[in-house]
Design a binder for these strands. Sequence first.
DNA 1: GAGTGGTCTAGACCACTCA
DNA 2: GAGTGGTCTAGACCACTCC
Lengths: 230, 230
Amino acid sequence: MRRNSFRDIRAELERRIARRVWEPGAIIPGEEALAVEFGAARATVNRALQELARSGLVERKRKSGTRVALHSVRQARFAIPLVRQEIEQAGSLYHYTLLSREVRAAPDFLRARLALPADARVMHARCLHTADRRPYQYEDRWINLSAVPQAEKESFEETGPNEWLVANAPFSHAEFVFGAARASEEEKAVLQLPEGEAVFVAERMTWLAERPITLVRMVHPPTHRMVTTL
Amino acid sequence: MRRNSFRDIRAELERRIARRVWEPGAIIPGEEALAVEFGAARATVNRALQELARSGLVERKRKSGTRVALHSVRQARFAIPLVRQEIEQAGSLYHYTLLSREVRAAPDFLRARLALPADARVMHARCLHTADRRPYQYEDRWINLSAVPQAEKESFEETGPNEWLVANAPFSHAEFVFGAARASEEEKAVLQLPEGEAVFVAERMTWLAERPITLVRMVHPPTHRMVTTL
DNA sequence: GAGTGGTCTAGACCACTCA
DNA sequence: GAGTGGTCTAGACCACTCC
């Protein structure tokens, strides 16, 4: 006879919630009582309950106890890997091409997005990432040179700014925006898409201790899918 | 002097990784050694390390030990609110319309996606959610009636299946898929989009203790943006 | 076989919150 | 004040994996 693990307990509690043995909003027995019932230590029951709380199935409050959540808070988590890793992990051949690289004054829209001063100098780089020679991602990136001056010395011919930044400019905070759009003329050409095709657009802004580092727009063909991680 | 908590230990380990005291790829001391160093129980160190592993900062393997992840897989979190909440929170007028409702045998693609038996009965509902009378989301939903039999009694004329399920069928696990597509004829009509417009598509599958509950495809106009929560 | 992480136990004390 | 969850400890055994 196997000992009750926190997984077993978690599964049994999930089952009871599923079968409405415990209705939404209802208080469920305390840790001590459940520990006795399952013949386990309270710490083990605690772990099972904490995981249920983390996934939003139950809500816990001291003194009040644990109740089945009425509206389980729905949060989704996504892993954001390097493009290269993403492609190679799928067993495909990765290839990177630098399309353009230019140092210039920051355009207005960028100054607004990243809260840059009027005279800010930035690097603008455009790249294509392919998987098995098929266009996978078009990367349109702006780097704030006052935050990452070393970037100006990089050619980005061999290693893309994505990988270079990961290795050389840690960030403390990031914001992502996802959406859909019709492919622009440029995107259509680079990604070899038919007229009027839809594209999946992901934008990422990163900061290191309040200083904006980079804004990148990553454009994918409509076949691209982004899936939550467990 | 306060006792070392798993949070303190986690924070200190994070700091060492950030300051490159431990380089990416390097093995860090074992739990026993860290427990001695921090004057804590091994279980406490273990909890700190497990959380770091969950957030992708370190990788752990038995016998090998714990090492700093080479490229920490960054994670982004998104809140998934009820459509109604999302719209009302933006200060807009929410309105819901049921477009169709039908009980039928599960189509093949659905049986495959949700691993349903051959004779599974499901409900198929199509709805439109508007914000200030403008189409906001087209919802195409399938509900597994063997998991949620009470759904068959609901008309969904007033309250949409989304809100009804939230209140009546909690889930323990969800999977999301996001992508872009060209609007289908139906989507074009319902969302009042011009010919060939791109749409943002979010799909959600939910389970409660291994039992599939529902698959929903939520289609938004290309103006829709999904932003990470802080 | 041996080393490291994974989990469990029994007991303890703390922290928050409700009444 | 009292009840419930939150966390820590010390010790133990297990499970996986490398050698």
